[in-house]
Structure formats: C-alpha cells, structure tokens
C-alpha cells in the first residue's frame, strides 16, 4: 500500500496510536508490522519552556511544509496530573486551522507518569505516523525546565524555542537543556529584551566545545509570522549537515538501540517479576538477609535457565 493511501485512513492511524499508548491487545503486532515501513519521516523535536510558543511555532512551521505538498504529523505532549491521572491537552488550540487539512495529522498525548518531557508511547506513535506516510513529524515536548532532554533520542533536529525575559546569561550557561538544541529560535521577537536573549544565546554557544555544527539562533514571531522562512532554512541546513556527515545514520542507530533496550528491559522485568522467588527475595532484602545485587544475580540465573517467552 502506498504511503499516501495509508495516510488517508485517519481513524485507523488514530486507533493504532491508542493501541500502543495503552498497550492494548495486539499492539506489539501493530509495531511489528509497521516497523519495516518506518524511517521516511524527518523528525523535528520542538522543546522549550512553558509558554514559549512551541505549539504556535509548530503550527506556523507545519503550514510551510504543507504548502510544499508534504504530509505533516504532530505529536503534542502535555503533562498528566500525578494526583488524578487526568490531564488537559491543550496544544491543538494553536493548531485548529490546520486540524482539518488532509495533509495534517495531530495527536495529543499525556505524559502519564513519564519524566523527561515525552510520554512512554511517543516513540511508538512516531513510528506509526512515519510508517503511515508522514514526510515531516513534529514532536512537541511538554514545557521543559532544565533537564528534560529525552527528545534528543527521537528527533533528527531539536529546535529549542526560547523567549525573552526568562533569566540572565547564567541560566543559559547551565548544563542540560541548553546543550541539546540543534537550532535555536527566539520567539516573540517583538517583545523587549529579545535581542539581548539572542546575544546571550550566541555567547553561550560560543563557549561550547568547538563542534562541526554551530546551532544558529533565529529571531521569530509565530504570532506575526515573521522569521519563519529563515528558521525553516536553518532546519534544512541542519538536516543537510547531518546527512552529509553521516549523523542521521548515527542518530537512527541510537534510536534503534534505545527501542531494543526498552523492550528488553520491559520483558526482562516482567519475566523476573513472574519468578516465584521474586517476592521471597524482596522479603529477604527487607530483612537484610540478602543484598539487592545478590537478589538480582539469583533472578538473572532464573532468566538464563528458562527459554520460553
């Protein structure tokens, strides 16, 4: 089936995402079937502090790609309440005009207890939209603080959206979030202090160890649709740089590794927990008659001896 046709089966795509998000029966088969068809979409991670304009900028950039005739998927993540388990997913508010466009597919996800700025099923949702025909995929993280950097594992290009007025240059010097941006956008460029924010970002970037790619800092306004072309060019340049230097392959290798390890971890934990000795060993740990390393070693031995799934 061609990618365009799969893309039109919107209910089916949506149902597949629901299945993987909730680990419904059959979700593994879905991922097994689509896996070979993945790898065609270019994945752009959009991250930045709450209220920076990530959704609005995603909307504005998506428009550009749609006008070029490309199919655009958006996965927008918002936080889940640790108390009620509920959430308000409000990223679509900024993307309403595009929501009926046939080249566009937007899906909101709650973090559901996952830290790091993404949800546990984000990677699976990316694979589904990719396999179903997306040319460009945006992953919009939750509003981030200083260390939600999971997005680097999934995105080909990380766009860091900043705004003026969030702090001085010391904030920009801190480790973590500021180190993962491939392209920086200073949104709300009409606000006072936007130029200063750009200068501080440039200064911060100058102090990074010399790399072959120096992240550009673009001044934009998602609201007034200014600076968007330059931003799109910067993203394209990063994409080209990565392709020319074999970086895309490296990133995708790392993604493959992450995906495999995540599944292995889940399966091993499930199997170990089903071991009769699991509870008993836990109890012995409570009584301090065994240490966790020895308990783990014994449970690992159990893994070696049983070969069924």
């Amino acid at each position: 089936m061609d990618r365009g046709k799969r893309w039109r089966e919107r209910r089916r795509i949506a149902k597949m995402i629901t299945a993987v998000e909730n680990a419904l029966p059959g979700h593994e088969q879905i991922l097994q079937e689509i896996y070979k068809k993945t790898g065609n979409a270019y994945v752009i991670g959009i991250t930045g502090p709450p209220g920076a304009g990530k959704s609005s900028l995603t909307d504005a950039l998506a428009r550009g790609y749609i006008e070029k005739g490309l199919r655009v998927g958006v996965i927008a993540i918002d936080p889940t309440s640790p108390f009620s388990g509920g959430s308000i997913l409000g990223d679509r508010i900024r993307m309403n005009e595009l929501s009926t466009h046939p080249q566009m597919f937007i899906r909101s996800m709650g973090t559901r207890g996952q830290l790091g700025g993404l949800s546990a099923a984000t990677h699976s949702a990316v694979m589904i939209l990719d396999a179903c025909g997306a040319d460009v995929l945006f992953i919009e993280t939750v509003g981030v603080g200083q260390s939600e950097i999971e997005i680097v594992k999934l995105a080909d290009t990380v766009l860091m959206v900043m705004v003026p007025g969030l702090g001085d240059d010391i904030q920009a010097m801190k480790a973590g979030i500021m180190e993962i941006g491939d392209v920086f956008a200073v949104n709300k460029k009409d606000l006072p202090g936007a130029d200063k924010t750009k200068i501080e970002l440039e200064a911060m970037l100058s102090f990074l160890p010399p790399r072959e790619w120096r992240p550009p800092v673009c001044m934009v306004s998602a609201m007034y649709k200014e600076g968007l072309e330059e931003l799109e060019v910067a993203i394209s340049e990063h994409r080209k740089f990565q392709a020319d230097h074999g970086r895309l392959e490296q990133r995708r290798m790392r993604n493959a590794q992450e995906a495999l390890l995540a599944i292995l971890r889940d399966k091993m934990v499930l199997r170990v927990k089903s071991d009769d000795r699991y509870e008993e060993l836990l109890q012995r740990m409570m009584e301090k008659t065994i240490d966790p390393y020895e308990a783990a070693r014994q449970l690992m031995e159990g893994l070696d001896s049983c070969s069924e799934d």
Partner: peptide
Amino acid sequence: EVIYTGLRQTPEQIVAAAIQED
C-alpha cells in the same frame, strides 16, 4: 485525558480532532 480545542470550532474541526485524537 481532556483534549481542549478552544473557541469557535466548526463541526468539521471538532470531528477531525475527535478522529485524530481517537
């Protein structure tokens, strides 16, 4: 899990969102 889409939605927008969000 509440998907909130804001003001002044057309029936088409509402249904498109309902489908995509499943």
